[in-house]
Amino acid sequence: MTQLDLMSATPETLAATEPAEFLAALKALSDKDITALMASGAREAVVSAIFTRMPELFRPERAGSTTATTHWDITGRPDGGSDQWTVRIADGACTVHRGHDGDSTLTLTMGPVDFAKVITKTGNPVMMFLTGKIKAQGDLGLAANVGSFFDVAKA
Rank of each mutant, 00 (worst) to 15 (best):
P60E: 01
A143D: 06
S104G: 02
P60V: 08
G64H: 09
L140D: 08
V152E: 04
G102N: 09
D103E: 05
E18S: 07
T10N: 13
T52V: 12
K133V: 10
L6P: 06
H97V: 12
A68P: 11
H100L: 03
A93P: 02
A93V: 07
T13M: 12
P78I: 07
G111D: 15
L23I: 11
D83G: 11
A93I: 02
T75V: 14
A136L: 07
S8L: 05
D33F: 08
A63E: 11
T120S: 05
K27I: 12
G41N: 04
D91Y: 06
T70N: 02
F129R: 00
D91C: 02
D5T: 07
F22C: 01
L140G: 06
D91V: 10
I34R: 01
D114Q: 11
K117Q: 07
A28E: 07
V146E: 08
I89P: 00
A153W: 04
T131R: 01
C94N: 05
T70M: 10
K117M: 08
A16C: 11
K121T: 15
D31H: 11
G64W: 07
I34K: 02
A116Q: 01
D79E: 10
R53C: 06
R88W: 04
E21R: 09
G92Q: 01
V47W: 01
K121L: 15
L26I: 13
F22S: 00
K32E: 12
F150S: 14
M1L: 13
L14T: 01
R88V: 06
